[in-house]
Simulated assay, not measured.
Amino acid sequence: MMLCARDVSFTIDRRTIVDRVHLEVAAGEFFGIVGPNGSGKTTLLRMLAGLRPPSSGVVLLGGVPMTALGRRDLAQRVALVEQQAETSERLSARQAVELGRTPHLSALTPWSRRDEAVVTAMIDLVGMAGFAARPWHKLSGGERQRLHIARALAQEPRLLLLDEPTNHLDIEHQIGLLALVRALGITVVAVLHDLNHAAMFCDRIAVMQDGLVCAVGPPPEILTRDRLAGVFNVDARVENDGEGGCFIRYTRPCPVHPRVAFGDFP
């Protein structure tokens, strides 16, 4: 499902958080958003999800303005996994994932065997089958994160939005989760903190700085040494991976000599 943001801005208390962003994400594309902290990535993602209306501009989903879609219709098409997703401590792991079926249920379409099958399949997909009966409050942060992904997938969305989805995950599950999401074949927009993850998995990325999108394109074209220095304030070498992609090698910074010696305190 194609997603388009046309000159969207978001302003609060006279401060512009996102400034006239124009993006087009093709159906089936894995699109990454990167940028330093405070650059507007999460605010933009919430506008793309239809959760925060732009102060100006419009977000289109399949050519239709999101504001024209009802909450139920939107939830059947779009799933968002936020950094700090809330889930009741009283639920089991499986019950948390079952919440993803809510947009598909009504008085005329009650819970069915298909709903059971979808929930089971999504729990299996994220490698949490052995945890389904476990109480939510006894799960680790990484286990909860994988279940949040499973709940989003249980919505059977055509557009999946992820805000730093690898938070709390070890390296095996970081790479495994992004590979899984890429293999789904649906449209994905992900805010990513790790630039090498963006280089490895994204078809295209947008770089944000001070609320603006300053570059959009395939990772090897966008993640240049000059841009990493200018936007992220790091020195790094960008190397070709031999498969049309790239990876980043960061240069160790010079040692910092603190002006305060801890032994000086009484």
Rank of each mutant, 00 (worst) to 15 (best):
V216A: 06
T43W: 01
L161D: 11
Q76C: 14
P258I: 14
A132G: 09
F265D: 10
D73W: 00
N167K: 00
E98H: 00
E243A: 15
L161I: 13
A117P: 08
D73H: 04
G28H: 02
H148Q: 10
G127W: 09
L153Q: 04
D170W: 14
P266W: 02
E164S: 10
V213I: 10
R158M: 11
S106C: 09
H193S: 14
V18D: 10
P157C: 06
V34L: 08
T87W: 04
C214I: 15
Q83G: 08
G130M: 08
V213T: 13
R227N: 09
V64A: 06
Q83R: 07
Q83I: 05
L74K: 02
W136G: 11
P103G: 03
A215L: 00
E172F: 06
G57K: 13
V188I: 11
A5D: 02
L178T: 10
G185K: 00
R71H: 07
V97S: 07
G142T: 15
G127Q: 03
R144T: 13
G32E: 00
L184T: 05
C4F: 04
V216C: 09
T11N: 01
L48V: 10
L45W: 05
L60M: 05
S9P: 06
T120C: 09
S140A: 15
A93G: 05
A79W: 00
T224F: 01
G40V: 13
R90G: 11
L147V: 11
D226A: 15
R20W: 00
A199K: 12
L223F: 04
I33H: 03
Q155N: 07
H257G: 01
D124L: 01
G70K: 03
L69E: 02
N233L: 08
Q83D: 04
G217I: 11
V126S: 08
I205G: 13
M128D: 02
L212P: 02
L228T: 13
P110Y: 02
P258Q: 04
P258V: 09
G130C: 08
P65F: 02
E143C: 11
T16K: 12
A133P: 01
A198S: 11
T251W: 03
L48H: 09
L60K: 00
A215Y: 01
L45P: 10
L162S: 11
H193T: 13
M128G: 05
L99C: 12
G263V: 12
V97G: 06
Q174W: 02
H173M: 10
C202Y: 04
A75T: 11
R146L: 15
P157L: 04
L159A: 04
V119Y: 05
G63C: 04
L139N: 07
P266V: 12
A150Q: 10
